[in-house]
Amino acid sequence: MQEKEIYILLADDDEDDRLFFTDALDELKIKTKVKTFNDGVALMNYLNDKSNLLPSILFLDLNMPKKSGVECLSEIKKDDYFKDIAIAIYSTSASEADIEDTFVLGANIYIKKPNDYKKLKKTLSNIVTINWQYDTSNLNKDNFLLRL
């Protein structure tokens, strides 16, 4: 087991989804610290504040008020300061266009929100335990969309 806790951020406007997310992570046997945001603007404010710690993984919902996930993604990828953050798209839909767009912008993985709590736990467990430093090297479009 890991000694150091993994710092995870989630930006999602849906309260229920945030609840599922934090509950599922809590139930994992992995030490994690989770912080959630209601919209893209809140997320970017937090990230841009240099006094705040940067997360290892950022889960990004696409459909958010004020600032969408895609906008956040492109802002983050533009700034070299955030280069170590692994970004997982976390969305209800998995339309070809969304997958294509976010892949091109440089997201690390695309997760379609599971409709089963057990599956959600399994998914999060998989994502959190990936060693992103190594894994980004064989990034390709075929394994971009997470399949379980």
Partner: peptide, 20 residues
């Protein structure tokens, strides 16, 4: 189709939590 999925997914997730 897309917007219907959202509440449905939650229903299913809650069902699975109930089951669990």
């Amino acid at each position: 189709s897309h917007d219907l999925q959202e509440p449905l997914r939650k229903i299913q997730t809650f069902i699975s939590r109930l089951e669990d």
